[in-house]
Design a binder for these strands. Structure first.
Length: 196
DNA sequence: GCGTCGATGGCA
DNA sequence: GCCATCGACGCG
């Protein structure tokens, strides 16, 4: 079942947590690929210094100020595209960064890390503003939700003052596809204590 | 197994 | 001049 506008029109923190275990679907021509989302990050609005919208309404951030359920895609470090899902209602610039997923079916590709994920799904700036309630790129419910969801600090936002400490990253601790995780992967006992 | 670093482009 | 990154490399 395709996620409707109402799913996205909620706070990014709620959407980020609920997206773990859901299936991202991409249709390009007759080809369709699917992957299970295992890692997300919430960017919660203009007051969140790690959120691009903290710079206010610009040509780049405009889409984040719009209705939830649209894609926000941008290029970072001149190399990697990032796929975000706009959340909340018009005027409230919140978004969720999709950071990692597990390819489904016969599809073999590395979707660990937001750069790899965008490359695997062939997401580029031309997909910016794409409506996720349409048929080209959308998300559906997974068969089985993950038994647990862990929370940690967001990755790569050291510049954002106290916002870097907020636990706004959500992940499936049992997935091998989570980024920056194997290194410090806690024991099952520790992971349990992280559960959201 | 770990830290460091270079690539490269849009944006303010 | 800054980055919501990745992967290669060097050290040990």
């Amino acid at each position: 079942m395709k996620l409707a506008r109402s799913f996205y029109s909620r706070p990014a923190i709620t959407v980020a947590r609920e997206l773990i275990g859901k299936i991202l679907v991409r249709r390009v021509g007759t080809r369709e690929v699917r992957a299970r989302i295992v890692e997300t990050e919430a960017y919660v609005g203009e007051h969140d210094l790690a959120c691009h919208a903290a710079k206010g309404r610009t040509a780049r951030t405009e889409v984040m100020f719009g209705m939830g359920g649209h894609a926000y895609v941008y290029l970072i470090y001149g190399i990697h595209h990032m796929l975000n899902v706009v959340c909340s209602v018009e005027g409230d610039a919140q978004a969720v960064l999709i950071r990692a997923a597990e390819p489904l079916g016969e599809w073999r590709v590395n979707l660990t890390g937001p750069g790899n994920l965008a490359r695997g799904f062939q997401i580029s700036r031309s997909d910016n503003r794409l409506d996720l309630t349409g048929d080209a790129l959308f998300i559906i419910n997974g068969c089985t939700p993950p038994p647990r969801v862990a929370r940690t600090q967001r990755v790569g936002v050291d510049f954002s003052g106290h916002w870097k400490n907020r636990l706004l990253r959500f992940l499936d601790p049992d997935s091998p596809a989570v980024s920056h995780w194997k290194k410090s992967r806690p024991t099952k006992r520790e992971a349990k204590s992280h559960c959201a």
